[in-house]
């Protein structure tokens, strides 16, 4: 389960497109699609490169898993059932160091709600969801 008290994350349901991504998460690896023609990363997974429009050159590529905190807010009145027992809880946007145009969501486990160091470096961790599927998360570098 999540290291954030009370949090029951909904579990991602893989499909044909996203199965490699979620399988890699279960191996504690973060892989993104790279268009080998454009040398452009994509996240979330997509059928076609958002630059050249081709789906022929998208290949999964492991990334290092280092990023920075862009902005954040604090969820205090969630409509999502699994989050209501965890409020207040951080909701941050993380940019990937290898390509800051790629961003991820994070609840920043280990960072008290509202005490988010904007601009700080973060590193990749993984957390369990309701059915055991791992998801990628981010933690402030100590």
């Amino acid at each position: 389960m999540s290291t954030i008290p009370g949090l029951e994350r909904p579990a991602p349901v893989p499909n044909e497109l996203t199965q490699p991504f979620w399988d890699a998460c279960n191996e504690r690896r973060l892989v993104l699609q790279n268009c080998t023609s454009c040398e452009r990363l994509h996240y979330p997974p997509t059928q076609r490169c958002n630059r050249c429009g081709s789906g022929d050159n998208l290949q999964w590529q492991e990334v290092e898993g280092k990023g920075h905190i862009d902005v954040y807010m604090v969820i205090r009145d969630s409509r999502i059932r699994g989050f209501r027992s965890a409020q207040p809880i951080n909701f941050a946007v993380i940019t990937l160091d290898e390509d800051p145009g790629i961003n991820f969501l994070s609840n920043l486990p280990g960072t008290p709600p509202g005490e988010v160091p904007v601009g700080a470096p973060v590193e990749l961790i993984f957390e369990e969801t309701s059915n055991g599927q791992l998801v990628h998360e981010w933690q402030v570098v100590a």
Binding site: R9, P10, A11, P12, V13, P14, T18, W22, Y43, P44, I75, S78, I80, F83, I89, F91, L105, S106, N107, T129, V135
Partner: peptide, 8 residues
């Protein structure tokens, strides 16, 4: 799958 697990 890429948003809901983080409370989006």
């Amino acid at each position: 799958a890429f948003t809901l697990p983080w409370g989006y």
